[in-house]
Design a protein around this nucleic acid. Structure first.
Length: 345
DNA sequence: AAATAAGACAACCGCTCTGCT
DNA sequence: CAGCAGAGCGGTTGTCTTATT
C-alpha cells in the first residue's frame, strides 16, 4: 500500500477546522504568504499537516472564494465543460472564478448528476441511458444479435437490454426511421465522447490540441437529429469487415471530425463558439460555428466570469424543479415512448 | 417530539505529476 | 537518471443539517 497519511504522524489533528485554526492560518498567510505547506503549520502554530492547511486554504479560506448557491450560468457551464472534460474538476474550476474544484465536484455529485439521471441521461457519457432499458428477451431469438452488438460497440458489454432495444429499432426501421437515426446518433455521440476523452491527456501533454469537435460539446439543431438518414446505416450487418473489434467503424476516425448529431441541454441558442480557428486546429468541425477551443477551456479565466454565455430563460429560474423543468423542455434529443425510462428511476 | 433517512458539503486519502538535487 | 519532496488531483468518507415518518 501507499504511505501512511501524513496526519497520522506526530498526532496531528484531523477533522473539521475550528474558527481559531482558521484565524491562525489566515493571519499567517496574510503576513507571510502561502507556499511551503510542510513548514507552514508549524510556523503558524497549527497542529495540522501541511496538506490539510493547503486544502483548507484553497477550498475555504481563500479570499476570492465565491460562496453560496451556484447560479444557472455556472451550472450550465459545468455541464457543458463536463461533457468535454469529464471529471477534470480542476480544469472545470478554472473556468468558474471563485469556485473550487472540490465545490464543483460536490455540486456535481449531489445536484447535477442526480438531475441528469432523473432525466434519463448518463452523467458520465452525457448520453441517454440505454443501459436502463428493458431489452432482455427479443435478441436471444435474433440471428442479428452478434452483428448488432458489433454495430453498437458493446460486444464486451453484452447487455441484453441494450441489444433488445437495438433490435426493436431495427425491426421498426421501415416504419419509423427516426428511431433508427436516434440510435445511430446516440452511438456516434458516445463514440465521439470516448474518443475525445481518451485523447485529451495526450494532446494536453504535447500542447497540440487547440480545438475539439464541437459536435461533442454542444449540438446541432433538432432537425438534424430527427431527419431520417438511413443511408448512413450499414445496410448489411454481416459486413463486419467495416467494423473494428471495438465496435468503432474503420472510417470513423476520418468521419468524426464531421458534425455529429447529438443533443443539447439548453437549446440550440446556446451554441458555444470559442476561438474558432480550424486552420490551426488538430481537430475541427466542418461547421466552423461548432468549434470549441479546448485551450481556452483549460486556461485560467481572465476577465469574463462566465465565458460560456447563456441568454436562456433558464437563468431566470430559481428552484431546482425549475432548472430540471427547463432542462427537460430544452433537451434536443428525444427518448422514444417505447423507452420507459421512468420505470427504472 | 423522537427516530430515522436523505441531502449537502467539508475534509481526508492515495495516487500522480513536477521540479529540484 | 534516480530519488525525493512538494503540490495537485480525483475519489471517497465523515459529519452536520434538514426532511420525513
Amino acid at each position: 500500500m501507499g504511505r501512511a497519511p501524513c496526519c497520522e504522524k506526530n498526532g496531528l489533528k484531523k477533522g473539521p477546522w475550528t474558527p481559531e485554526e482558521d484565524k491562525n492560518l489566515v493571519d499567517y498567510i496574510q503576513e507571510h504568504g502561502y507556499g511551503n505547506w510542510r513548514t507552514l503549520p508549524k510556523n503558524a502554530g497549527l497542529q495540522r499537516c501541511g496538506k490539510s492547511c493547503r486544502l483548507r486554504w484553497t477550498n475555504y479560506l481563500r479570499p476570492d472564494i465565491k460562496r453560496g448557491r451556484f447560479s444557472f450560468e455556472e451550472e450550465e457551464t459545468i455541464i457543458q465543460l463536463h461533457s468535454i472534460l469529464g471529471n477534470k474538476w480542476s480544469a472545470i474550476a478554472a473556468r468558474l472564478p471563485g469556485r473550487t474544484d472540490n465545490e464543483i465536484k460536490n455540486y456535481w455529485n449531489t445536484h447535477i448528476r442526480k438531475r441528469l439521471l432523473r432525466m434519463g441521461i448518463d452523467p458520465v457519457t452525457h448520453s441517454p441511458r440505454l443501459d436502463l432499458l428493458d431489452l432482455s428477451s427479443i435478441l436471444y431469438n435474433s440471428s442479428q444479435m452478434n452483428n448488432m452488438s458489433r454495430f453498437l460497440g458493446v460486444q464486451n458489454l453484452v447487455n441484453p437490454e441494450l441489444l433488445r432495444i437495438a433490435t426493436s429499432l431495427m425491426s421498426s426501421e421501415r416504419e419509423n426511421p427516426n428511431d433508427l437515426q436516434l440510435l445511430q446518433n446516440l452511438q456516434q455521440n458516445q463514440l465521439c465522447n470516448s474518443q475525445i476523452q481518451n485523447q485529451i491527456p495526450q494532446l494536453l501533454q504535447h500542447n497540440e490540441l487547440q480545438e475539439i469537435p464541437a459536435a461533442c460539446v454542444s449540438f446541432p439543431s433538432e432537425t438534424q437529429i430527427v431527419e431520417p438518414n438511413v443511408e448512413q446505416f450499414p445496410s448489411d450487418f454481416t459486413q463486419t469487415a467495416d467494423w473494428q473489434s471495438n465496435g468503432i467503424p474503420l472510417n470513423f476516425t476520418e468521419d468524426y471530425v464531421n458534425p455529429l448529431p447529438s443533443y443539447n441541454y439548453y437549446g440550440s441558442d446556446h451554441q458555444t463558439v470559442m476561438d474558432p480557428s480550424p486552420e490551426n486546429s488538430a481537430f475541427y468541425s466542418n461547421n466552423s460555428n461548432q468549434n470549441f477551443s479546448f485551450a481556452s477551456v483549460l486556461s485560467t479565466p481572465s476577465s469574463s466570469p462566465t465565458p460560456l454565455n447563456s441568454n436562456s430563460p433558464y437563468i431566470n429560474s430559481s428552484t431546482e424543479d425549475e432548472r430540471e423543468s427547463y432542462c427537460s423542455t430544452m433537451l434536443k434529443f428525444e427518448i422514444p415512448d417505447i423507452l420507459c425510462v421512468n420505470e427504472f428511476m
